[in-house]
Structures are given as C-alpha cells and as structure tokens.
C-alpha cells in the first residue's frame, strides 16, 4: 500500500508528562510477558502500541490502570505513583482497594469486548459511574450522558439495552461511559478487534474526534491506518520489549528494527489478502479476529 508522504503533523503533546512508566516487568506463572518497558506520554498525546499477538501490549495497558499488578518498575500517572505509596525510606506500600479505585477514576478504559453492563440501558451504563462513584445527581448525570451519547452518534439510543445494539454501537457507548468520568487519560485495548469489518470505521471515527479534542490516549491496536494518521507517537512492542518507537511516519514508514519490518510486512500482506477476498472475515492469525459478530 504505497502511500504518499504527508506533511508532518504537529504533535498534540502539550509538554507536561502525563504517564511515565519505567522499567515495567511482569510475569504470569514464570512466563515473563513484560521485560522492562519504558513509556512516556505527554498530555494531549495519542500513543499507539503496536505489535504481534502476545507481545505484551495489552498486559502493559492493563498495568497502567492496575487491572494487572506489576512485578517491577514504576508507573506514574499525572505525577502520582500507581498502586503504591512510597515512604521516606523508599519502602513501597501497596494501596488499599479504595485508594486504587480512586486512582482508576482518573483513567478511562475501553475494552476489546466492550464489557457494557448488559442489564442496564445505554444511558444507565453511562450514568452508573458518575452517580455511584462521584456522587453526581441522577438528573445532572443524565444530562451529561445524553450529550455524550450524542457526541458518539447515539443520540437516538439511550433506552436501548446493549444486547439490542451492534458491536460498533456498543463500543461507542463504552467510550461514552468512560468519558462520563471526565478522565485525564483514556486507554483503548484493541477497541476494534472484536468488530465486524464494516463497523470498525464508526468506532475509529469517534476515537479520532476524541483525539482532536485534546484527550490523552494510549491505544493498543492493529489498525495501522489509524496509527499512521492519528497517533503522535507509535510504540512497537515484541516479546515483552519495546523494539522501536517514534513518530508514526518514521516507525511505520521507515522502520529500522528487523522485527518491526517483518511485522509490518505481515500486516501489509494480510491487508492485501483481505482486499482480494472481499467478503471473507479477515484471518490474519491475530488476536481478536474471528469472534462471532455481536
């Protein structure tokens, strides 16, 4: 897919560091999935984490909002150490459930499989956390929820249960739900991998709009086009390490690392094969593909 070089876009980064992860390590049952990851994200920046299945990008993303614990390293979000308190002597103390919940409030997360609450309507999904966690009044939360649903193009669906929505619609409700907490940072864990190909575009469009509002976003994705066009910074991970990172034009257009190159070649081939077999579900051998349509 030859692409004309575009004019370099000015980065959205405002300069302040919002997320800093240093030397993150994590093992599942002795199997080391993160082998010392470093990442710095500035306010307003959109960072895409790319890489093959099992490279650790999803695990790393989940570590940021403490859905996974880390074995080593430190993560700061907006200057606050995540998951631990450090005393004067440098001794770490694990935070309690309440403090962890408080830290998570500042971070929105969108999951691969949407994880909407199926027993609540779209509107109830969006107002759940503001009313239950922040203690905002129901009427105020509803007002804001209606606005948010409209902003993701679902003004007509507040009363629909998730089961009555398409995958793309569910994912957009999930984005609205996360935004309802006014997070400083949004994490996206392969937000389009469980979607039918024709529904991917509507979700990416909403994410693009969100990026343009100046939201800081970390996105794990296989959507190369999205990374190329929207990301300010691209991180390529493989086997638990960062192989290469930098502006998308550099990493994706002129990769220096051999693993990045072979991955991009495979993605490129898969995309071409998809184009050739128009109606087939793409079988790229990548995680998330081949799920039943929602």
């Amino acid at each position: 897919m030859a692409r004309a070089a575009r004019a370099p876009r000015t980065s959205r980064a405002t300069g302040d560091v919002l997320v800093r992860a240093v030397n993150i390590t994590k093992a599942f049952h002795g199997n080391e999935v993160l082998k010392g990851i470093d990442l710095t994200v500035h306010g307003g920046e959109v960072v895409c984490l790319l890489g093959p299945s099992g490279s650790g990008k999803t695990t790393f993303l989940r570590c940021i909002n403490l859905l996974e614990s880390i074995d080593g390293g430190r993560i700061w979000v907006d200057g606050e150490l995540m998951g631990y308190r450090e005393d004067e002597k440098g001794q770490l103390h694990t935070l309690g459930d309440k403090q962890i919940a408080a830290q998570r409030r500042e971070i929105g997360m969108v999951f691969q499989r949407f994880n909407l609450f199926p027993h609540k309507t779209a509107l109830e999904n969006v107002i759940e956390a503001p009313t239950q966690v922040k203690g905002i009044s129901k009427s105020k939360a509803k007002e804001r929820a209606v606005e948010l649903l409209a902003s993701v193009g679902l003004a007509d669906k507040p009363a629909a249960y998730p089961g009555a929505l398409s995958g793309g619609q569910q994912q957009r409700v999930a984005i609205a739900r996360a935004l309802a907490m006014d997070p400083k940072l949004m994490l996206f864990d392969e937000p389009t991998s469980a979607l039918d190909p024709e529904l991917v575009g509507e979700v990416l469009r909403v994410m693009r709009q969100l990026a343009d509002t100046g939201m800081t976003m970390i996105v794990v994705t296989h959507e190369m086009e999205f990374a190329r066009e929207v990301a300010d910074h691209v991180v390529f991970m493989d086997a638990g390490v960062v192989c290469e990172e930098g502006p998308p034009d550099e990493v994706l257009g002129n990769p220096k690392n051999e693993r990045t190159r072979s991955f991009l070649r495979r993605m490129h081939n898969a995309e071409e094969r998809d184009a050739a077999t128009a109606d087939d579900v793409p079988d790229t051998g990548l995680e998330g593909v081949g799920l039943p349509p929602a």
């Binding site: 859905l67 408080a102 409030r105 997360m109 999930a174 739900r177 907490m181």
Partner: peptide
C-alpha cells in the same frame, strides 16, 4: 470483564 469494567470506572469491590 464485567467486574473489570466496573473497577476501571473506579467502583470499589463492594459496589
């Protein structure tokens, strides 16, 4: 994923 989604929104274990 349901509990994870709730926790990611800052809900405590009890809620």
């Amino acid at each position: 994923g349901q509990a994870e989604a709730a926790q990611a929104l800052g809900m405590g274990n009890g809620k």
